[in-house]
Design a protein around this nucleic acid. Sequence first.
RNA 1: CGGGGCGUAGCGCAGCCUGGUUAGCGUGCCUGCCUUGGGAGCAGGAGGUCGGCGGUUCAAAUCCGCCCGCCCCGACCA
Length: 486
Amino acid sequence: MGNEKQFVQEITPKSQDFSEWYVDVVRKAELADYTTIKGCMVIKPYGFALWENIRDALDKRIKATGHQNAYFPLFVPESLLKKEAAHVEGFAPEVAWVTHGGNEPLEERLAIRPTSEAIICSIYAKWVQSYRDLPILINQWANVVRWEKVTRLFLRTTEFLWQEGHTCHRTMDEAQEETLKMLRVYQEFAETELAMPVIPGQKTDNEKFPGALYTYTIEAMMGDGKALQAGTSHNLGQHFSKMFEIMFEDEDHVRKYVWQTSWGVSTRLVGGVIMTHGDDHGLILPPRIAPTQVIVVPIFQAATREAVVAKAGELKEHLAKICRCEIDARDQYTPGWKFNEYELRGVPVRLELGPKDLAKEQCVLVRRDTREKIFCPLTELENRIPALLEQIQKDMLARARAYREENTRTVANYDEFRQVMEEKRGFIFAPWCGNGECELKVKEDTKATIRCLPLDNENRVIEAREGVCVRCGAPAKYNVYFARAY
RNA sequence: CGGGGCGUAGCGCAGCCUGGUUAGCGUGCCUGCCUUGGGAGCAGGAGGUCGGCGGUUCAAAUCCGCCCGCCCCGACCA
């Protein structure tokens, strides 16, 4: 165990410095690294494989709900970006501009998209003529650029990858239905695939998207008790359609503006997965998105090498048909080294096979999440592995949910609110009067913001029937989640 | 963008205060032997514009100035 102690020193313990722990894990698990460009990271093959799995799982859901993928330009002419006032105001400080083409100054400078509402709306205006053209249900996977002052690997980088859905509808009700449908898609996706429990809710006016009528969010709790906005879905109303003149002639011969939505999640989710599940040994990846689900580590001496490696290779070939399975038979690394390496990388299950196992026709399975060892007859592997992966996925979600519940508190008064936010962090579920000024004051006092107004099963914001605002004492309108956020 | 910390081999660091041979240590890397059930051992070897630019000096990793990057804490954001 002395060796383990030494190894663990390579990663800053979570409890000692969560931020350092996070950076250590990202870099040592080879998810990403810094580059020579400020705020821009390189997503390394292992990190990108993880992102691809996340992307593919979500892409299936986006298509299953009737959307099609398309691709729009990277550049947004300044005149387009400026059309929607709140929108341009919100994004102005973080827009990167292209001013030259080769050596020639451009007549009009081009924004590199911080988000694509402007460019997409300008094109939708040409596509929509009749109510028969609606709805338009399009998604794009793209990179966007936001000139952030403070960046963090995956959580906030200057350039990041995401998907952005952009839809047009005939009525307000239809747009609202779409907005909430996609919010629930995000929730189901986060919980099923990422094992990341989230709270779906509505953003306050202070926190909503620039240009949106309503913004909805899924909020997750990270291992340090801070909140992560893991996805957003906006009802854009007619703000953009009016500015970009996206109009259709309805059945009643009246020309009307379309009702729009947009919704997105980004590579930030990778950061969320790390901070939801990781421990002092490194990453813990949910099986459904783990690039490698089972790593086979053969253990051998010179005399047993041939037999063990042959059998291990056979097992790997067999398992590769039912899961993402790899083998590491390199002999320049000891088994112990490999154990630590694959734990650091968060591989859900390790399969050890040594001479003793071979004699008994069994192997050792080790769960990454609990580090529990399980002896398994080789003949049962085919059944045990899928069940074990499912069990790990389920347990990870349950564990994350339990952690969130433990760290979600109610408080008796504002003094206690401040104390909890200072000492324990986590979420505070508290009554609020609905006044934005009150919200800002809380932020000033405690750095906590209202993460969301939670929704009931009918997707309605839950109104408070009793109680008074945790800060001002006025009658409460809503019960909301407060937290410090990433 | 303000306050603090850091920047020396792939990674982790010492050296800097008090300038002076060929810049060192651990680990990793390469070669060979040997090993392999929780980051093994021995021998040999390669690897550095000391973050960048400028200044002071006979002489700068070391002193001074400016800039860049990363981390932490605050103001803004997926």
